[in-house]
Simulated assay, not measured.
Amino acid sequence: MLYGIVAFPEKHVQDFANSWRRRYDPHYSAIPAHLTLREAQEWSDEELQLAVAHLEQATAALPPFTIALDRVSTFYPVSHVLYLALQDTAAMQRLHEAICCEPLAITASKYVYTPHVTIGQELSADELHDLYGNLRMQSIHISSKIDRIQLLYQTDNGSWTAFQSFLLRG
Results as ranks from 00 to 15, higher is better:
Glu102Thr: 02
Glu102Phe: 06
Glu102Leu: 10
Pro103Ala: 00
Pro103Met: 01
Leu104Phe: 03
Leu104Asp: 07
Leu104Val: 02
Leu104Lys: 07
Ala105Gln: 10
Ala105Glu: 11
Ala105Gly: 02
Ile106Cys: 05
Ile106Asp: 06
Thr107Phe: 07
Thr107Asn: 10
Thr107Ile: 07
Ala108Leu: 07
Ala108His: 12
Ala108Glu: 13
Ser109Met: 04
Ser109Leu: 07
Ser109Ile: 05
Lys110Glu: 09
Lys110His: 06
Tyr111His: 14
Tyr111Pro: 11
Tyr111Gly: 08
Val112Asp: 09
Tyr113Ile: 01
Tyr113Met: 04
Tyr113Cys: 06
Thr114Arg: 11
Thr114Met: 08
Thr114Ala: 04
Thr114Tyr: 03
Thr114Phe: 04
Pro115His: 06
Pro115Glu: 03
Pro115Thr: 02
Pro115Arg: 07
His116Val: 05
His116Gln: 06
His116Trp: 08
Val117Asp: 02
Val117Ala: 02
Thr118Lys: 07
Thr118Glu: 06
Thr118Phe: 04
Thr118Asn: 11
Ile119Pro: 06
Ile119Trp: 07
Ile119Val: 15
Ile119Gln: 08
Gly120Ala: 05
Gln121Tyr: 04
Glu122Phe: 07
Glu122Asp: 09
Glu122Val: 00
Glu122Trp: 03
Ser124Pro: 05
Ser124Thr: 11
Ser124Gln: 01
Ser124Phe: 00
Ala125His: 08
Ala125Phe: 00
Ala125Leu: 02
Ala125Gly: 00
Glu127Tyr: 00
Glu127Pro: 03
Leu128Thr: 07
Leu128Gln: 10
Leu128Asn: 11
Leu128Val: 08
His129Trp: 12
His129Met: 13
His129Cys: 06
His129Leu: 12
Asp130Asn: 11
Asp130Glu: 09
Leu131Gly: 05
Leu131Gln: 06
Leu131Pro: 06
Leu131Ala: 06
Leu131Glu: 03
Leu131Val: 01
Tyr132Thr: 00
Gly133Ile: 10
Gly133Lys: 12
Gly133Glu: 11
Gly133Tyr: 09
Gly133Phe: 08
Asn134Thr: 14
Asn134His: 15
Asn134Ser: 15
Asn134Tyr: 12
Asn134Met: 14
Asn134Ile: 10
Asn134Gln: 15
Leu135Pro: 08
Arg136Lys: 15
Arg136Gly: 11
Arg136Trp: 12
Arg136Thr: 15
Arg136Gln: 15
Met137Gln: 15
Met137Cys: 14
Met137Ala: 15
Gln138Glu: 14
Gln138His: 13
Gln138Ser: 12
Gln138Met: 12
Ser139Asn: 13
Ser139Leu: 09
Ser139Trp: 05
Ile140Val: 15
Ile140Pro: 13
Ile140His: 15
Ile140Gln: 14
Ile140Gly: 14
